[in-house]
Structures are given as structure tokens and as C-alpha cells.
Amino acid sequence: NTSNTAKNQESNASGSSDGYEKTTIRLAYNLPQDHHISKGIEQFAKDVTEKSNGAVNVQVYPAGQLLSDKDMNQSILTGGVEMGVNSATLWASTVPAMGIFDVPYVFTNYEKAGEAINGEFGDKLRVAMEEKGAKVLLFADYGFAQFANNKRPLKSPEDFKGLKIRSIGDIPSEMIKAYGASPVFMGGGEVYMALQRNTVDGATSGTTAMLQRKYDEVAKYLTINNYSYLEFLLAVNLDFWNRLPEKTQALLTEEAKETEEWIRQQAQAEDERTAKQLEEKGMEVYVVPEEDISVWKEAAKPAWDAFHKTGGDLGKELLKMVDKE
């Protein structure tokens, strides 16, 4: 695939403005256009294009128009698109250690997650991604995952007993099982009706998505237990990246850094806003108190064990790093 990127640049190198070589970067993402990550990424694309006076043209394909979350990674790795945004959960199928963001209670607040990502923890993940052929431009914080259900307020892990909960990904499913509930797998389009008709008792997701998918209409109880810190990555095809002029790389890196910080601030604000709005719309909200978290964390141990098995050596190492703090 190097031949094409070379050709692209050959044909594009003709004109340049402000010293930036002309390049087109195709960037795909799969979140709804009004999500805070989407807004950050759109702004990133706009800023890069503007600051290079149009020379570095970032062409955005929003909201799954081009690629779904399942085919995003392979498309980035094979150069189908130059850049793409996808969840750490889905990157875990290529870089197993990425599953760490799904491990329950690894990060208990927004600041800690940010520190880890900016430090050695983040570096190790960046290297692992590059070994597979993708460079991480930025980590985009989605926010914490919570539970919605129709049976009862979930005030302790025991309250999960016997519930059927629509799950996302493998590690959250292990936690759901550890709490005595059963994970159910179904397409995203069917969750609303499944909650409405009690095909499932509950579902897990961020409150931003719950509000967007109108969970308040079909689920009664919301449990804020901040059990996992959902993370998304803006990744770029490594071959493509290595062929970019240093000046362009510098611009992209700088803009990515700004975007990452903006998104991190938004994540907290959005989580708070959407949880409040769900409450206003009639959901009964239970916030797990700080002092209870250790109990919830202890009960989720089987999910940690599962990650020990799937996360590889790097996964174990990362787990040790965050557990120490």
C-alpha cells in the first residue's frame, strides 16, 4: 500500500502554500454528529485545513457514512482511509491491551485517566498500536459507562442478580456475569424496543448515548457507578504518517493535542449534563457513593481476571501500573 500513498503525494506535491505540502486526508468516524467527540474531531479537521491554508485538506466522513465501527480498524490499517476514530474496545481486537479501558474501576475519575494517558501508560499503548501499523494521534474521552434498567434501583452488585442486560464488548460482560446478571447481545437498533417490551431488563452505555437513544422513555432506573472509562482513539495509518513532511506532522500533532484536551473537558461536562437531563425526563437516578466503590470493584474481580487472560503481557503490565496508584 506504500505505492499509493507515494503516488498521492507525487500528484499532490505540485502546489504548496505556506510551506505545507498539499495532501488530502480522509477521516472517518462512527459516532453521531452531535456527540462531543464528533464536535472535537470536526473542529480538528477544520483547524488543520485552515491553518495550512487549505493545503492539508482533511475530508471528514461523519456518523458511519463510510465505515462502521467494526470495519474501521482494518480500513485504517490497509489505507482505505488515512485516519479514523474508533473505540478502544474495538481496537482491543487488534491490540489486546486496549481492553484496559473496559476493565471495571481502572479509572475512577477524569483527571486520573488524563494523567495516565499523557504518561508512560499512554506511551506503551501508543507503541503497541504502532507495531500493528497505526499511529495514535489522540485519545478521545467518551465518558463513563453506566447502567439503566427496568427492575429496581441497583444499589449494590447483589441487586444485579437475575437481570438480563444488553452488554457492549467482552469485559463489561464478564462484570455483568460476576454481579449475577446475564449479558445479552443484540443489535443497537433493537435495544430500545427490547427495553420497552422487557426482552432485556437493562442496558449499559454512557449517559450521552442513553439520552440520544431515548432510554428515558423505556427504562426506569439509572445507576451512576462510573464503572468503566470509555475511550476512543483518533488513529492514522502509519505508512501514510511516515511519508508526511515534518511540518505537516507537527501541525497535526499540535492540533490533536488541543483537541484531546478540549474533548476531555467536554466528557465530564457532558456526562453531568446528560445524567441530569435523564433525571429531569423521569429516570430515577442512584449515584453510587465513593465509599461503596471498593465493594463494587471487589465484586468485579472476575472481569480483571478475564483481562489478565486476554490483555497479554502488556495488558498485565498496564493493569499493575494503574492499580498501584
Binding site: 505505492s3 467494526k70 480500513s75 489505507g79 482505505g80
Partner: peptide
């Protein structure tokens, strides 16, 4: 879209078209 290079996307998109539980 870049000649035969783009054909690498054919299997990815073909698989994706049917990769849907509904």
C-alpha cells in the same frame, strides 16, 4: 481512487455489508 491499491477494500466492505445481526 488510486488504482488497484483500492481493491484491498473490496473484502473489507464485502464482509461489512453482511456483518449485521438484523
Amino acid at each position: 481512487n488510486g488504482g488497484t491499491f483500492a481493491f484491498a477494500q473490496v473484502p473489507i466492505i464485502s464482509y461489512k455489508s453482511l456483518d449485521d445481526f438484523s
